[in-house]
Design a protein around this nucleic acid. Structure first.
Lengths: 145, 145
DNA sequence: ACAAGTTAGTTGTATAATACAATTACATAG
DNA sequence: CTATGTAATTGTATTATACAACTAACTTGT
């Protein structure tokens, strides 16, 4: 393993993290935030789930997810379906409004990313996507042990 | 451009951003933070600079860099070299202690990343590093216009 | 069947990293 | 020398996170 690539990966990840952080501040009123959208996406693709399950899925603290869920509920993007077997628990289900929001958001992000990567070759896009995925996978597997 | 890869890139970037965010919470007392280390790295590799120049370099708000600089100074990792021609300005120079800190930090990060990527092929590491770099470059070029 | 322990979720508090707006102290151009 | 511009700081706000204390509800072991 050539140390140089490790160093590149490290510093580029740091830079990327920062860029993604500041880029998040394109903030029109009424929009909801990146993390909340990941939650919306999750319950859309994987079905309704409770705070605990979502937190595990994302490897976040339960309190973090709880607040995100509350924010989504306040905006009407999810509702809480009480668990009939456990009165403490509920599962988050996406609403019509939430689906609309998620679609708009995805559309916009796709358009932005398409614009950003318009000069990239299809091969590079594909490779980047795959490597990001692999990296995330590696990260999540490691940190969960 | 296959939309699928765009979608993968988008969602994996979001996940990555979050992982990097939570990973930052391995926080021993006395350590300084990721962003501050980027600043240290910058003035080490590119030479002393003032807050404004650094903010431009990193495309951050000046106030952000100002606070990071203050934190680094408080820890003794940089000192402020007054600009003889302009009494408002100064340039940040790294101290001995700062260099030590930076080396330790890099060392530790390299070790962690090496451990994380121990099962990756050299080719994948190299490709990932290159694509990250390319992506960051694309991002910075675009947002500065 | 009930006390003890566990679990789902919330809320309080703290932190890092950022931005924007107001301010201060200095610099420069008419 | 006044008016305007500029480097940096400071106040305030936001997002995203964690940890700890808490509440309400569930489960277990005797």
């Amino acid at each position: 393993m050539n140390e140089n690539w490790l160093e590149t990966i490290l510093s580029e990840l740091a830079v990327l993290h920062r860029s993604l952080g500041s880029a998040a501040k394109y903030k029109k009123p009424g929009t909801i935030e990146r993390s909340a959208h990941l939650l919306l996406g999750q319950i859309t693709s994987q079905g309704p789930a409770g705070v605990k399950a979502l937190a595990e899925e994302f490897q976040l603290d339960i309190s973090t997810v709880s607040r995100q869920a509350a924010a989504l509920e306040k905006k009407g993007f999810v509702y809480r379906m009480p668990d009939p077997l456990d009165k403490r628990a509920y599962s988050l289900q996406i609403t019509e409004l939430g689906m609309k929001e998620l679609m708009n958001y995805k559309q916009k992000r796709l358009a932005d990313m398409g614009e950003l990567l318009k000069d990239w070759s299809a091969e590079d896009c594909e490779a980047f996507g795959q490597l990001l995925k692999k990296f995330n996978h590696t990260l999540l597997n490691l940190t969960s042990k």
